[in-house]
Design a protein around this nucleic acid. Sequence first.
RNA 1: GGGCCCGUGGCUUAGCCAGGAUAAAGCACCGGCCUUCUAAGCCGGGGAUCGCGGGUUCGAAUCCCGCCGGGUCCGCCA
Length: 563
Amino acid sequence: MYRAFKRAVEHLLKRALEEASYECTSLELEPSEHADITSRVAFTLATKYRKPPKSIADDIVRHIVLTPADRALISEAVAMGPYINFYVSDSFLNATLERIKAGNTADKRDTKIIIEHTSANPDGPLHIGHLRNAIIGDTLARVLKRVGYHVETQYYVNDMGRQVAVAVWGVSRFGLNMEKKGDHAIADAYIAANRMLESDATCQSEVDALMKRYEIGDEAVMKRYESVVQRCLAGIKASLHRLNIRHDIFVFESRFVRSGDVERVIEELKHRGDIKYEGPAIMLRLEGIDKELVIQRTDGTSLYTTRDLAYHMWKSERCDRMIDVFGKDHELVSEQLRKALLLLSVDVLPEFVIFEFVSLPSGSLSTRAGRYISADELMDKIEERAYEEVDKRRSDLSGDKKRAIARIVGIGALRYDMVKVSPEKHMIFDLEEALDIEKKGAPFVQYAHARACSILRVAREHGIAVPESADLSLLRADSEVALIKKLSTFEYVLENAACELKLHPVARYARELAELFNIFYKNCPVLNADEELRAARLVLVECTMRVLHEVLSVLGIEAPEEM
RNA sequence: GGGCCCGUGGCUUAGCCAGGAUAAAGCACCGGCCUUCUAAGCCGGGGAUCGCGGGUUCGAAUCCCGCCGGGUCCGCCA
């Protein structure tokens, strides 16, 4: 609803500016703490027309005429010094609730977007660094889907890199602990292998040989690879499912070598690019980048970047937009990728969502060195901690129920923590802090939802139904109006998030909505109110419950009915 | 050395791209509120020279330049 209000104000203001004979390019409209929307246009006009901003604002407001159509959304426009403030109307507030009751859904868009995220190497379990990628990627997919895009999520499996070769080699050499979850067992072999490889040149060449044989498609080697990669991936998928993350498809990079796509990319680049040969090795010079990009090794095998290029070309034929969620360390690579794709005349170029690194207080994360906190370990601990909290508060519930709530709260807290800060912020991960289930994080929002459910449940138990229609204009207490206004901006927040590919405003919105509901909860008793007012408040509670549920769902967080 | 990112109360952050109304929250701290729909809640309080120095502007946390501190990339690794 908020967008409709904003559009109405735009038209209104534009008309008034014409009437008052002012010309300007931007209306300078922004949401504000002082009004429902405010314009700073008087400032820009002040310089141009050499008049004090205050008198211009007054002048503009004098020319504002609200038509009956405007009044459906806008109640008034006031000049406050140099600012022009606009306020929503009563019917806007009512319409907001009516619309939510009717179930507000976004129109479908034709655009198909492929989002690639997580894509951790299959050489061990996901750790907290991958978690940031996975949660950002999954939440982004949910936001874009919610505003109507057709979204496909992809996990690009790097099965041709050196890491995997080392893991495969390590598994043959040291065996596999079958008691352990697959991804963890493979990490053990991988770490042990790396330790040995550091000092042993013979082993190094064994790994090289393994890579070469995999690239040419040696049957026996392929079988060994497959068993390692699938086992690891199964473990990774299980971890992702715990977080409510499911990829639509897994794309193996080896397919692009086997299909001949990689070779075709190299041929194409030879013709179109600024190429430098060093023996059998081929390098590509890209404009604006000092470092040339190696697209084929001296031994004739392919490299990650070339395969990635083929992968992106493949994707570009299957979508209208593609988004890659990458760690900061991939920034240069992504730039090279984009420039090379441009050279290949690919019409869909990737957009990048880059996030800064997660490190431990003791330093950076490394699977190879075994220096990481696995996602599984973190989830176990956080659910355990959540259970203690639930147990403290709800000794009346059964163990199963408490565990179910603990799982929802724990995972929710984790997901919320990852998206609440902007991605360019470097995170130093503190386990204790993560386990300290933050009061105003996901549990706070979930609690508000549970409270709303509780009111509705108690109402039901007393035989009181949420009415089909109610006199919504009874909802004019400060905390009611503030809550309805917040509800009205939900779609607007989502659209902005989708447009800017930024998620933390969504997390912020969820918290603010929960906060306003809690204030309403405190100030406005629902079930004890007079019948008419009770009916209207029940509608408000149900609408809030729905939006809380929806915003949590967009964040990939479950909404418990009690906690 | 060069590129990119970050630097806002004790701690974690929002605001910065598109400069404007007393710099906005959470945690922690202090003080209130459970005979009323779940106190994982609500109300109140203290606490910030927005890293430093210049510049542009009627106006700078926000734009420009320089510096300082932290991170990261600059492999025939991925």
